[in-house]
Design a protein around this nucleic acid. Structure first.
Length: 313
DNA sequence: TCTGGTCAAGGTGGT
DNA sequence: ACCACCTTGACCAGA
């Protein structure tokens, strides 16, 4: 089990998701912004490696407007290939796993051809980034099924069809996450049957939308959709903000709840993404709480203390 | 320097 | 038909 957090680190005083307004676009502005984003990303990755946080979600804003027509004459991939390659080496050397989660505008099942085109372009940007980092297939891009468009079954199978139309290298990185309103775990499993795509279990979403499966049952079926090349299954963990609106994420990790989760999720192993507002703080707290859990991954070169090891004299 | 309205992109659900 | 919400940070114009 690797533990991680999404996109932002709150204590380094930098952001790897800096952007700018479309009307401020220029190739120079793009290069300057991405340089800053990469500098910050490097700091975040070093922080993570130093602290045993081996899982991290890369922001979609790393290269602003990468899939937008405004930037189509600028070859961002070629421009940043060298730097991304270096970062990728660091990631691999330190046993880090990365994932991405494009936002709500990515809708593979939209009936609108333009929305589909934009979505595919944006997914290609995500895959390109992970490719330039030289990361294996286990570096995943997780998306939701999308809209219902007044006919859920039709829309679900349209999603599956569109997945099968994607080029192989992109499709191999895609994973489907259950949402809290329209497409639950069962629906994602159906898509898995048709497309082979693995399923990310989001624990909070599953809590809000389910068909009575317990956490353990849900983990069992979601885990079974992952093959060895996909890497360990990914699970998203968050909690409802107490007293907050339905689905709203909490500000911090709650120890007793998280201990209960670790207990209830036995014996399944997976990499855990903590979607909690205070980011690395909760991730570090989770690491402490999980210390001693036999599933916890250790960085390469760091050996778990052996019980009863005789001390050389 | 600070702040609040706004930002490439969509869909849902309440009024 | 319209608007707030999703989830959220960061930009940037204007004070």
């Amino acid at each position: 089990m690797k533990i991680g957090y999404p996109c932002l680190n709150t204590r380094l005083g930098c952001s790897s998701a800096r952007t700018f307004r479309l009307r401020s676009y220029s190739p120079q502005r793009l290069v300057r912004t991405v340089d800053q984003n990469l500098d910050c990303l490097e700091r975040i990755l070093r922080f993570n490696a130093d602290h045993g946080l081996l899982f991290f979600r890369l922001t979609s804003d790393l290269v602003p407007f990468a899939s937008h027509p405004v930037a189509e004459n600028f070859d961002w991939a070629a421009h940043f290939a060298g730097r991304l390659g270096e970062l990728g080496r660091f990631i691999r050397d330190h046993g880090l796993r990365l994932s991405m989660h494009p936002d709500q505008f990515i809708l593979l099942n939209s009936p609108d051809p333009k929305v589909l085109r934009n979505s595919v372009a944006e997914l290609r940007y995500h895959a390109r980034l992970l490719d330039l980092l030289g990361l294996p297939e286990e570096a995943k891009i997780q998306i939701h099924v999308g809209g219902v468009y007044r006919d859920k079954t039709l829309s679900l199978f349209r999603f599956a069809d569109r997945c099968l139309d994607l080029e192989e290298p992109l499709r191999r990185r895609l994973v489907i996450e259950n949402d809290e309103r329209s497409y639950g775990l069962k629906d994602c499993l159906m898509i898995h049957l048709v497309t082979g795509l693995p399923v990310v279990l989001d624990v909070l979403h599953h809590h809000l939308l389910n068909e009575g499966e317990s956490l353990r049952e849900a983990l069992a079926v979601a885990s079974a959709t992952w093959s060895p090349d996909d890497g360990p299954p990914i699970v998203d963990y968050s909690r409802q903000r107490p007293g907050g609106r339905r689905g709203r994420h909490a500000d911090s990790l709650e120890e007793a709840e998280f201990r209960a989760f670790l207990h209830d999720s036995q014996p399944y192993d997976f990499d855990l993404m903590l979607e909690i507002k205070d980011k690395e703080r909760s991730a570090l707290h989770a690491l402490e709480i999980a210390a001693g859990d036999a599933r916890l991954a250790t960085p390469p070169g760091v050996r778990r203390p052996e019980p009863e090891t005789p001390v050389p004299t």
